[in-house]
């Protein structure tokens, strides 16, 4: 019985931690979709730019991680604005062209990183090294920092959108861009602002994702798939839905990782093929299941 408790505790703690990071990873992607109906397939690449920036500043410029982090966020904010003004603004009218263009940009960023930094896996030093014990579960301290920072970013974002004047302007534009234009809102300026915020969020997420998982030129794929799944599962553009979806996907991933222990623990004899190698599939399984059961997403509305 004791062993069961330990496993359950571990699953709960780990999934609560990783899901917060996933929610943060998807936040900028959700916002861009919610406000401008644009699926930014370069979102994962934005995270990667943030991760490499922080790593580069730390490794070659010998900055401490806090300054490196600030540089990564600043650069990603700028990247978001440049990306919108230089590319998305011109192709936004056609969802297909936007998809292809943003995906192409993600691949270009991948190639550039391969050229400049090789395909080697890099490590980003954590904010705080070491680990702590929560009851009987060992948790890497840096992951708790990432958890706290993720929730802080989500809460600040929520407060901004619902309390600040420009936050409400973003909401209004998201709900009806023509209505927004007719009350005198400069819709392009709102889009530029959302891309800046989305870039900043990607920068924050990128640094934490890097220190949690790894840095390599292919690291943009997982965050993109996770973001995509979270946005669809949560209901297109819904912040609340995204958080619930992030927790659903995070929990399922941790369950996959621990499925061998769970089997031993409860003496199951089925699903013996499941294990940590199935982690990547879980978000997509949830995605497809939702498309069948509730295509508009958990908190979505049919449009």
């Amino acid at each position: 019985m004791d062993q069961v408790f330990v496993i359950v505790e571990r699953i709960v703690i780990y999934s609560v931690l990783i899901s917060a990071l996933y929610a943060l990873v998807a936040l900028g992607f959700t916002m861009i979709f919610g406000v401008g109906r644009v699926l930014n397939l370069a979102h994962g690449a934005f995270l990667m730019v943030g991760a490499y920036t922080a790593w580069f500043a730390q490794q070659y410029l010998h900055w401490n991680l806090y300054s490196a982090f600030a540089l990564a966020v600043a650069l990603c904010t700028l990247l978001g604005v440049v990306f919108y003004q230089g590319l998305v603004r011109h192709v936004q009218r056609s969802p297909i062209v936007t998809l292809i263009a943003t995906l192409a940009c993600a691949l270009i960023i991948e190639e550039l990183i391969k050229i400049f930094f090789t395909t080697n896996t890099q490590l980003l030093a954590p904010f705080i090294s070491g680990s702590i014990e929560i009851h009987k579960t060992t948790v890497i301290t840096n992951r708790i920092i990432a958890f706290g920072a993720s929730w802080l970013a989500i809460l600040l974002f929520w407060l901004f959108v619902h309390r600040a004047r420009w936050g409400k302007v973003i909401l209004a534009t998201a709900q009806d861009h023509e209505g927004a234009a007719l009350v005198g809102i400069d819709v392009r300026r709102v889009y530029t602002l959302t891309w800046a915020i989305s870039g900043a969020l990607a920068g924050i997420a990128g640094v934490f994702f890097a220190s949690w998982v790894k840095i390599d030129p292919f690291m943009w794929r997982d965050p993109l798939i996770i973001s995509f799944a979270i946005v669809v599962v949560g209901g297109l553009g819904s912040l609340k839905g995204s958080i619930v979806a992030a927790y659903l996907i995070g929990l399922l991933e941790v369950l996959m990782t621990y499925s061998p222990s769970i089997r031993v623990c409860f003496s199951f004899r089925c699903f013996e093929f499941l294990g940590s190698s199935w982690v990547g599939v879980s978000s997509l399984l949830v995605l497809i299941a939702i498309l069948f059961i509730k295509p508009e997403g958990l908190f979505g509305r049919t449009e």
């Binding site: 409400k168 909401l171 209004a172 709900q175 009806d176 023509e178 209505g179 927004a180 009350v183 809102i185």
Partner: peptide, 18 residues
């Protein structure tokens, strides 16, 4: 072209944006 997920009051206040 109202803002469907905003309250009546917020819709009106948004009208005074200019």
């Amino acid at each position: 072209h109202l803002f469907p997920e905003m309250s009546v009051k917020d819709n009106l206040l948004m009208g005074a944006f200019r």
